[in-house]
């Protein structure tokens, strides 16, 4: 049986369903984790030392625990802590998907906030001094000078996070979310043959990552190409599993 034949049958259909769930989960968590990352970063800009330290510790703690453990906690543990009404509401919906999405968003959000923060910190001091010397306020300096530059150098690491996040959605299979790898495993259980389903799933991830890598390169070429000095790219924090 060739890969084409395999994919054109009903197994192809299952894998397609899995791919759609993977893309949905990736899209939802990418948006949510970006918002979480931005909010955490903004809170960390607070002038209060204690607030900075508390949020810093929270971010580090989230990053120190495996994503699988986050997923397990949000799926098996957290719903029990909810009030009855809310829990009923949750169980009436796609509870597996929701819990996985919450866990992945929080986990990736912590990594994104680190990227954003090191992006902000990589802007040389002279930039804010030049802006202040013209008479801009601290907020105006942040808004017109620091933020636009930080955003531009943070885009490539953010695309890297998008890639890692997409791969990480596979961990949702551990709580029964029918994403791509889950469907591949299910087909294996039916056919007792692992090669075709896993090869198909693998191919899909390679294509997704290739597209994101190309996007990142194109961005670096166009948006950052005029730079003659070596780019101060902040170190990407790999999410891993």
């Amino acid at each position: 049986m060739t890969l084409i034949e395999f994919l054109s049958g009903r197994y192809g259909e299952l894998l397609l369903k899995g791919l759609i769930v993977t893309l949905q989960l990736s899209g939802v968590t990418l948006a949510a984790s970006f918002v979480i990352g931005v909010v955490l970063t903004l809170i960390r800009l607070s002038p209060l030392w204690i607030v900075q330290q508390a949020v810093g510790l929270l971010v580090d703690a989230i990053r120190s625990v495996p994503l699988l453990v986050h997923v397990i906690f949000w799926y098996f543990g957290a719903p029990e802590l909810l009030p009855d009404g809310l829990r009923m509401w949750l169980y009436a919906r796609d509870v597996n998907f929701i819990c996985a999405a919450v866990a992945i968003s929080i986990y990736a959000g912590a990594f994104i906030s680190e990227d954003l923060r090191s992006g902000l910190r990589s802007i040389p001091r002279g930039q804010s001094e030049a802006s202040l010397s013209l008479g801009f306020s601290g907020f105006e300096t942040f808004r017109y000078i620091i933020l636009p530059q930080a955003f531009r150098i943070t885009v490539p690491p953010l695309l890297g996070q998008a890639m890692t996040l997409t791969k990480n959605t596979s961990i949702a299979l551990m709580i029964g979310v029918p994403e791509l790898v889950y469907q591949a495993r299910r087909i294996q259980d039916i056919t007792y043959e692992p090669l075709m389903p896993y090869a198909s799933a693998t191919l899909v991830y390679v294509v997704i990552c290739a597209l994101l890598t190309l996007a990142s390169r194109a961005y670096s070429r166009t948006a950052l190409s005029h730079r003659t000095e070596p780019e101060r790219t902040p170190a990407t924090r790999e999410q891993s599993a």
Partner: peptide, 20 residues
């Protein structure tokens, strides 16, 4: 200080032009 700085121009050793 902001209003005062508008009246005191400053030129830096490292230029500090805004690269964006």
């Amino acid at each position: 200080i902001r209003r005062q700085r508008q009246g005191i121009g400053f030129v830096f050793q490292q230029f500090n032009l805004f690269p964006h």
